[in-house]
């Protein structure tokens, strides 16, 4: 167990260090998020958008950002020819968990900035900040859980192109629906009843995240090893 934790931490630390050296993913994603949000805000005409549509727009931007940023996680290893070294020194589950933690942290950072900008640009008022934060964190975990395995899959293909969004979007439909519902409640719901109202959506998100991550752990070795 200690060995496994150390391996996972090493994979995560390696990715974080590489990211801090180049800041490629973070810079690219932040610029993408802000420009996408600007497009959304201009197209929506900020003053008269229904809160449900606002919640939907927010999650659409999150989904596209994640599918752009997380797809690189394993492609990078193949491009730099470091995948073999990683296979030699670690087991599959260490790599999966390390990459998952890295994906989660990077998307969470980007989403934090995104939500701030979203609230300001579309002048949204939050009725229940705690619920919004929990929804975002859970949604991000489910998102990165599903994307990490798919990123490993597309790294094995000859032509990746637009493959990741195509593989990802249908799978994420249950998560997306629950997340939009919970976000909608956090923007409008009364402060007292918001948690109760959002309970079923949050339960669905937790269940989905659990299923996706456990399935990924079980399946990852088949993708990772030849």
């Amino acid at each position: 167990m200690k060995h496994w934790l150390r391996g996972t931490w090493a994979v995560l630390r390696k990715d974080l260090r590489l990211e801090l050296r180049s800041r490629y993913v973070l810079n690219a994603l932040l610029v993408f998020v802000l420009s996408a949000l600007l497009v959304v805000a201009l197209a929506a005409g900020a003053d008269s958008v229904d809160t449900r549509i606002q919640a939907g727009l927010l999650w659409i931007v999150i989904l596209f950002t994640a599918s752009l940023g997380l797809g690189r996680a394993f492609v990078v290893e193949e491009e730099c020819n470091t995948a073999l070294l990683l296979r030699l020194h670690t087991t599959g589950s260490m790599v999966y968990t390390g990459k998952l933690a890295y994906s989660f942290l990077s998307v969470l950072t980007v989403n934090g900035v995104l939500v701030m900008a979203f609230l300001v640009l579309l002048s949204v008022e939050v009725a229940h900040a705690g619920l919004l934060v929990v929804t975002l964190a859970l949604g991000t975990l489910g998102l990165s859980g599903a994307t990490t395995l798919l990123a490993a899959i597309i790294a094995r293909t000859a032509r990746s192109g637009p493959l990741l969004p195509m593989l990802l979007f249908p799978l994420l439909m249950p998560l997306l629906l629950a997340a939009v519902e919970a976000t909608h409640l956090s923007l409008t719901g009364s402060v007292a009843g918001a948690w109760n109202a959002a309970a079923s959506a949050l339960a669905a998100m937790t269940g989905f995240t659990g299923v996706v991550i456990s399935a990924s752990v079980l399946l990852f070795d088949h993708v990772w090893h030849d």
């Binding site: 395995l149 249950p174 629906l177 269940g207 989905f208 993708v223």
Partner: peptide, 22 residues
């Protein structure tokens, strides 16, 4: 096969959880 099994794992949500919320 990995993708097919992975997608099948989310089917319970499509069949039971999602319809309950709509």
């Amino acid at each position: 096969a990995v993708y097919n099994v992975f997608a099948f794992a989310t089917v319970p949500f499509l069949l039971y959880v999602l319809p309950r919320q709509m």
